[in-house]
Write a protein that binds this DNA or RNA. Structure first.
Length: 585
DNA sequence: GCCGTTTTCGGCCCGACTGTTTTCAGTCG
C-alpha cells in the first residue's frame, strides 16, 4: 500500500468516527495522521520497516500499531469494526471535493448508493435532479456536486516541483510588469520547495489590490477566471492548472506570506504556542487583547512569537519550531555553496546500454565555469557488458580518459584561463549479485566511481542491502547514486536497510547522492535528515544528460535544505583542494 | 488519538465561504 492509499484508509476511519459521533479530537487525530502520511516523502512502508512510523508528527503508538497489522496482514480488524454498519459507498464519495463525512453519509444512505461505482451513481442521481429533493440540499448544492465530481475526475497528479516552479516564475515575471505590485512570492508547498506541488499559489504585496488582480486575470495564459474578489483571484490556465493569487497591503504582508506558506501543521503549532499566551494568530496578524498587530515581513512575525525566522523549507512541524525558539536552527546549505557537479553524462560514445548524454564535454565544461564551479566530474554509464569484451570496455574508458587529458591540455582555449578541474568518473551498474558491471582492472583508469541500481528493483531488503554494500566496497567507489530509486509520481523506491548503509558510508568515506533530477530528488528529505543526524556526508549531483539540466542543481539543494543539511554535510561544497584530498582516501 | 522545558493528564488552531437556513452546519485550506 502506498502513502496515498494509507491516507485514504485513515481518512475513512476518521469519517466513520465522525458519523458515529466519536470524540472530536480522535477524529482530528486520524485526519492528521492521514495528512502526515500523505505528505511524507518517504513511504510509510519504509518507515515501518525501519521502525520509525511514529517519527511522523501525528502518528503515535496507537495508529502505528494499527498500521503494523496493515503491513503484516493486509488488513486492520479494528478499522473494519469502526466502519461496520456504515454504507461502504460513503468512503468512495469522500474523494469528491466538497463532500465530507456528513454529506457522504447522507447521500449514500438517501440515494441507496452501492459500493464500487459510488461516484458515477451519484453523478446520475444529480443529473436526474434527485439531489435537490433531499432535505438540506438544493439546486445549488446539486450543481456543486456535479462540478466536484467533474473535478475529481480530471484531478491531475501532483506537479513536479520543477514544473510548478517554471510555471509560477513566468507568472511572477508577468506580474512584475504591473507597477502597483511591490512584492510577489510563492506560497504553499511551492515556497516550501516540496518535491511535488498540489497547486500554485502566489502572494502579492500592494496598496492597489484591484489593479494587481485585474492584471493577473488578464494574463495571456488564462483560460478562465474562476473567482475574483477584492483581494484574491483564482484562474484556470490554458493548460488546466489552477493558480491562486492573494494580495495584502505591504504593512501586513508578513502574516499573509507566513499563513499561506504553511505547512498546515507548522501553523497549527504556532497557533498553539500563541494560544498559551492568550494570543490569536491569523493571516492578518497577531491579536493580543483584542488589538491586531500587523507585520510587514515574516521576520518580525516570528520574532514577536519569540523565535527566529524559519526558512520555509523547514516549516513542517518536525522540530524547527523548537529549534527556532532556542535560536538553534541549522545554517542551511545554499545554491552558491556548491563548488562542482560529480555526476554528469556527456555525449562521449562509451557505448552504454543506458542513456548517453547529448552534449559534448567541452560545452558542459563551459557551462560548469559559467556556474562558478571549481570541478566537474564526467560519469557516463559503463559500456554495455553484453556488447563488449572486458578489454573493449576498458579501451573505451581509456579513450575517454585520453579525451579528457586532451581537453585539459587545451584548457586556456576553453576556459579563457579560468581553471576548472575535470574528473574522469564512471557510473557503474550494480548487478543483482552486487558485482560491478565493469571489469575491476578498469578501475585504475578512473578518478572515482558512481554506483547505482538500474535493475531488479523488487529484491527483498536484506539482499538489496548486501548487494549495495558489496558494490560500495571498492575504495574507488565514492558515490551511491539515486539511492532509493524512486521516481516521483511514478515509482516507489526499492527497499534498503538504511542504518546499515549509512553506517557503512560514514565509516568508509562513501557519499550517498542527492540526485537533483526533478523526478528523482533522491535521497528524499527524510533520509537526508537521517543521514545528517548520523554524520553521513552526501553529494548533490544533477545527473545531467543534457546541457540545460546542469542548472537543476538548485532542486537538489532545495531537498537538501528540507533535510536540514548544512554545507558541512555536503562534500561538493568543498573547494577542489579539500575535495581532492578526500577523493583519494 | 496525540503530545509534553508550565502537563504522562488534560488540553487540542483560525477564518472564509457557501448553501440552506432563520442562526448554522459542513467543508476547505
Amino acid at each position: 500500500m502506498n502513502n496515498r492509499e494509507i491516507a485514504k484508509l485513515l481518512r475513512a476511519v476518521s469519517a466513520a468516527y465522525e458519523i458515529k459521533g466519536k470524540n472530536r479530537f480522535k477524529i482530528i487525530a486520524y485526519d492528521r495522521a492521514a495528512s502526515a502520511i500523505e505528505h511524507s516523502t518517504s513511504e510509510a512502508k519504509d518507515l515501518w520497516d525501519d521502525n520509525k512510523l511514529t517519527s511522523l508528527a501525528g502518528v503515535g503508538f496507537s495508529i502505528a500499531s494499527h498500521l503494523d497489522k496493515l503491513f503484516k496482514k493486509g488488513r486492520v480488524l479494528h478499522f473494519e469494526k469502526i466502519m461496520k454498519g456504515l454504507p461502504p459507498a460513503m468512503f468512495e464519495l469522500l474523494e469528491v471535493p466538497g463532500i465530507g463525512p456528513k454529506t457522504a453519509f447522507t447521500l449514500s444512505q438517501k440515494l441507496k448508493i452501492k459500493p464500487g461505482t459510488a461516484i458515477s451513481q451519484l453523478k446520475r442521481a444529480a443529473q436526474e435532479g434527485k439531489i435537490r429533493e433531499i432535505e438540506g440540499f438544493g439546486k445549488e448544492s446539486e450543481k456543486d456536486l456535479l462540478e466536484g465530481i467533474d473535478e475529481a475526475g480530471r484531478r491531475e497528479e501532483r506537479l513536479l516541483l520543477s514544473f510548478a516552479d517554471n510555471l509560477a516564475k513566468k507568472i511572477i515575471e508577468y506580474m512584475k510588469g504591473e507597477k502597483s505590485v511591490k512584492r510577489i512570492d510563492f506560497l504553499g508547498s511551492l515556497r516550501r520547495r516540496v518535491a511535488t506541488a498540489g497547486d500554485i499559489d502566489l502572494a502579492v504585496a500592494t496598496d492597489q489590490p484591484k489593479k494587481a488582480i485585474d492584471h493577473f486575470t488578464r494574463y495571456s495564459e488564462v483560460k478562465e477566471v474562476v473567482a475574483k474578489g477584492a483581494n484574491t483571484a483564482r484562474v484556470l490556465l490554458k493548460n488546466n492548472y489552477q493558480v491562486d493569487l492573494k494580495t495584502q497591503k505591504p504593512a501586513a504582508y508578513g502574516a499573509l506570506l507566513q499563513h499561506f506558506t504553511g505547512s498546515k501543521q507548522h501553523n497549527i503549532r504556532l497557533r498553539e504556542i500563541a494560544r498559551k499566551k492568550n494570543w490569536s494568530l491569523s493571516e492578518y496578524g497577531i491579536k493580543i487583547k483584542g488589538k491586531l498587530y500587523q507585520f510587514g515581513d515574516e521576520e518580525s512575525f516570528y520574532k514577536k512569537l519569540g523565535m527566529a525566522w524559519i526558512p520555509p523549507e523547514l516549516r513542517e512541524d518536525s522540530g524547527e519550531i523548537e529549534a527556532a525558539e532556542k535560536n538553534k536552527l541549522p545554517k542551511l546549505i545554499k545554491p552558491e555553496n556548491i563548488k562542482g557537479d560529480l555526476h554528469v553524462h556527456s555525449d562521449f560514445p562509451l557505448e552504454a546500454s543506458h542513456d548517453e548524454g547529448t552534449t559534448p564535454m567541452r560545452k558542459m565544461i563551459e557551462k560548469a565555469i559559467e556556474l562558478g564551479y571549481e570541478y566537474l566530474g564526467f560519469s557516463e554509464h559503463n559500456p554495455s557488458q553484453s556488447q563488449h569484451t572486458e578489454k573493449q570496455m576498458i579501451d573505451l574508458l581509456k579513450r575517454k580518459k585520453e579525451e579528457i587529458e586532451k581537453i585539459k591540455s587545451s584548457y586556456n582555449k576553453i576556459t579563457q584561463k579560468k581553471k576548472i578541474e575535470i574528473l574522469n568518473g564512471l557510473e557503474v551498474d550494480i548487478r543483482p549479485n552486487g558485482d560491478w558491471a565493469f571489469p575491476r582492472k578498469g578501475f585504475d583508469f578512473v578518478d572515482y566511481l558512481v554506483v547505482s541500481i538500474h535493475s531488479n528493483f523488487k529484491m527483498d531488503r536484506n539482499r538489496m542491502t548486501e548487494r549495495t554494500l558489496k558494490a560500495l566496497s571498492h575504495p574507488k567507489v565514492k558515490i551511491l547514486s539515486h539511492p532509493t530509486g524512486r521516481l516521483l509520481t511514478k515509482r516507489e523506491g526499492y527497499e534498503l536497510e538504511w542504518e546499515k548503509i549509512f553506517d557503512f558510508c560514514r565509516k568508509n568515506n562513501k557519499w550517498p547522492e542527492i540526485n537533483a533530477q526533478p523526478e528523482r530528488l533522491d535521497l528524499p528529505e527524510t533520509m537526508i535528515k537521517e543521514a545528517v543526524k548520523n554524520g553521513v556526508k552526501m553529494v548533490i549531483n544533477t545527473d545531467s544528460h543534457a546541457l540545460d539540466q546542469m542548472e537543476m542543481m538548485g532542486y537538489g539543494v532545495a531537498v537538501a535544505r528540507r533535510g536540514w543539511a548544512s554545507p558541512a554535510n555536503i562534500v561538493n561544497t568543498l573547494s577542489w583542494e579539500k575535495l581532492s584530498g578526500i577523493l583519494k582516501n
